[in-house]
Simulated assay, not measured.
Amino acid sequence: MTETLTLNNGITMPALGYGVYQTPPDETAAAVASALRIGYRLIDTAGAYLNERGVGEAIRSSGLDRSELFIETKVWISDYGYDETLHAFEKSTRKLGIDQLDLLILHQPMPKRFDATVQAYRALETLLAEGRVRAIGVSNFMPDHLAALLEQTTVVPAVNQVEVHPYFSQPEVQAANASHGVLTQAWSPIGGITFYRGTGHSTLDDDVIGGIAVNHGKTPAQVMLRWHLQRGRSAIPKSVHEHRIAENFDVFDFELAGAELEAIDRLDTGVRGGPDPADITTDVFKLAIPEE
Results as ranks from 00 to 15, higher is better:
residue 270 G to P: 03
residue 107 H to A: 04
residue 277 P to M: 04
residue 153 T to P: 05
residue 145 H to M: 01
residue 125 E to H: 05
residue 3 E to W: 09
residue 150 L to T: 06
residue 123 A to M: 11
residue 202 S to M: 03
residue 269 T to Q: 03
residue 67 S to E: 14
residue 268 D to L: 00
residue 205 D to K: 14
residue 66 R to Q: 00
residue 41 R to H: 01
residue 180 H to D: 11
residue 43 I to F: 01
residue 67 S to M: 07
residue 5 L to Q: 10
residue 14 P to K: 09
residue 160 N to W: 02
residue 128 L to I: 09
residue 84 E to T: 14
residue 216 H to A: 12
residue 91 K to L: 13
residue 93 T to P: 03
residue 272 R to L: 15
residue 185 Q to S: 14
residue 195 F to W: 14
residue 54 G to E: 01
residue 252 F to R: 07
residue 256 L to K: 05
residue 133 V to Y: 11
residue 209 I to K: 01
residue 208 V to L: 02
residue 222 Q to I: 12
residue 265 D to A: 08
residue 108 Q to S: 13
residue 188 S to R: 09
residue 182 V to K: 09
residue 40 Y to E: 03
residue 54 G to D: 00
residue 290 P to S: 08
residue 205 D to W: 09
residue 256 L to A: 05
residue 110 M to Y: 12
residue 238 K to M: 13
residue 158 A to R: 06
residue 89 F to M: 12
residue 246 A to C: 02
residue 222 Q to E: 07
residue 170 Q to W: 04
residue 110 M to C: 10
residue 280 I to D: 11
residue 55 V to G: 01
residue 155 V to G: 05
residue 193 I to Y: 10
residue 135 A to G: 14
residue 134 R to A: 02
residue 76 W to D: 04
residue 69 L to M: 08
residue 182 V to N: 09
residue 41 R to V: 00
residue 65 D to Y: 06
residue 3 E to Y: 08
residue 73 T to W: 03
residue 4 T to W: 07
residue 218 K to W: 07
residue 144 D to E: 15
residue 71 I to G: 03
residue 190 I to T: 04
residue 213 A to E: 07
residue 52 E to C: 01
residue 170 Q to L: 11
residue 91 K to I: 14
residue 247 E to D: 03
residue 276 D to T: 07
residue 149 L to H: 05
residue 57 E to W: 04
residue 40 Y to D: 00
residue 120 A to V: 04
residue 55 V to I: 02
residue 70 F to R: 02
residue 140 N to V: 01
residue 43 I to Y: 00
residue 88 A to M: 07
residue 226 R to W: 06
residue 93 T to G: 04
residue 86 L to W: 10
residue 85 T to K: 10
residue 241 H to W: 05
residue 140 N to E: 01
residue 60 R to D: 00
residue 61 S to K: 13
residue 259 A to E: 15
residue 95 K to V: 09
residue 205 D to I: 09
residue 272 R to D: 10
residue 209 I to Q: 00
residue 16 L to D: 10
residue 80 Y to S: 02
residue 140 N to R: 00
residue 199 T to D: 13
residue 102 D to N: 13
residue 226 R to V: 11
residue 284 V to T: 14
residue 71 I to Q: 05
residue 176 A to P: 09
residue 225 L to T: 07
residue 263 A to F: 04
residue 89 F to T: 15
residue 46 A to S: 00
residue 38 I to F: 06
residue 242 E to M: 07
residue 162 V to C: 05
residue 210 G to T: 03
residue 128 L to R: 14
residue 282 T to F: 06
residue 29 A to V: 04
residue 249 F to A: 09
residue 19 G to L: 12
residue 221 A to H: 04
residue 156 V to E: 06
residue 241 H to L: 09
residue 45 T to G: 01
residue 243 H to S: 14
residue 244 R to W: 03
residue 65 D to I: 08
residue 93 T to E: 04
residue 188 S to W: 13
residue 5 L to S: 11
